[in-house]
Amino acid sequence: MADIALKKSANPAGSPVREQLRALDDAAVVTAFLEGEERAFQELVDRYQTRLLNFIYRTIGDREKGEDLVQEVFIRVYRHLHRFDRSKKFSTWIYTIASNLAKNELRNRSRNPLVLFQTIRKNWADDDRPLQFEDSSMRPDDLFRKRHLRELVESSVAQLPEHHREVFVLREIEGKSYEEIAEITDTNLGTVKSRLNRARSSFAEIIAPALD
């Protein structure tokens, strides 16, 4: 079944079933999958892989581990989709799984200094990469400035406390509503608002000197 689910993705993108699935909302895609349409799972993967990667990557600060965790999210979705309460929003459910995995990762890292050190080392190595994926039509000093700014923003987000960072990323990068964030993070609305306000202020304080 797993084989079928993803091998079907090799079909041409314009196949009628894929087109029909693309036009459906999440709830309908989930229903289609549970009723036997294998390609619906690939549709869910296509819809959520980038969003989840950005959420997890900005939360834990490690892209490679982020990809592993996104895979873990889809494995869990695949195994437990039959238990998903279809009266709820699928996106909230999948983000909750991602959020829990990201939190576990941060917790493990804080308990294991070696993992933390390896992550830092990996990020140093990333800094040494050539600018091969940048737009070659830009001038070198523009490229440098752009990359510098990106790194600055990423490091500013990484400096936020864990709880604040999670809410901040869900709101400012993923565009989630306060209610959804409260559900994903299993906190009340007031806590979400206060964490977000503090995170915004801290982020602005951290990044302001670089923008002036």
């Binding site: 923003v153 990068i173 302001a208």
Partner: peptide
């Protein structure tokens, strides 16, 4: 300060798998 910070953040390029 807040708006500029968030503007830069919102323009952060998305990473892909």
């Amino acid at each position: 300060r807040m708006r500029r910070g968030l503007l830069v953040l919102h323009n952060l390029p998305r990473v892909h798998c």
